[in-house]
Design a protein around this nucleic acid. Sequence first.
DNA 1: GCTATAACTCGCTTGCAAGT
DNA 2: ACTTGCAAGCGAGTTATAGC
Length: 280
Amino acid sequence: MAIHSNELTERDLKLLKLLLDFGVVSSVQLSKWIFPKVARTTVLRRLRLLEKRGMIRKRGTLPDATAVWMIDQKGQRLIAGMTENLYFPAHQLEHEITLNEIRWRLHGLGVVQSWMNERELRRKAPDRNGFERENLAIPDAVILMKHFGRPEAFVRMEVELNIKSNERYKRLFQRVDPYSQGARAWLWYLVKNRSMGNRILRYAKKHGDYSLPPILGFTVIDDFLTDPWSAEFHQLEKATALTTIMKLSRPESAVKNTHAHASAQAMSTEGLNENNVFAA
DNA sequence: GCTATAACTCGCTTGCAAGT
DNA sequence: ACTTGCAAGCGAGTTATAGC
């Protein structure tokens, strides 16, 4: 493992791939996912080194001062063979970091077949006139799940940390969405608390076009992150365990282990999609 | 109440000794 | 030669306290 100082390690490459795929990732997340069992000081030192070499860049900080990183020009050229202007608004960093956490957890559960983030969705959105484009309701992610209510289900995911105005929900549920995949698509809100989710459900019922209904429901973010096995998928008239929706059976080993450990294990054994960063 | 300042918190950085 | 972890310290933000 003798590595000359200006060479990149396997771990560095894994980190760069993760940043390219996820967009922005916090120091804490990089610590958990790329540097398990490595002291935080060492992690931060490595990040600074990669920053100095133009591989990564500090994008900003979270309210608790945790740094948030993105890939820089050199890193992009190395991993993607091209550069692209990546833009992550400062006020959305917390949202992105939360979305990452949910995504990582879902991958860890082995339920994700493929994941398309908002950036990719926008890029592939039909480029008609400006109005159409602006009027598309692009979700935070479109996920092809192994099972979600039925096998091979498309799920549009929205992570909602702050409740939007009633007017915005009204417009949102009336909009055309080219990614709805017809009547069989699910719309899954991950919300801060129950009252937020209920309000969204009520507005969807009031303003949505239910002649072609997406199957709409929400899960409370903290419930899902602390224990996915006891989290629920809330709909207007009922709540179903996520384990039922996703056909998930709790592995014996995961009961004893910490969540981080459990996800890391699942991650390394579960072969995931394309150019994935999850492969060991 | 209001303001000034001390005490504390938290993520990050740095120096140093030890490990590979 | 380079990486790692510990301990101490820094800076910015927050909370507690003292004096008016």
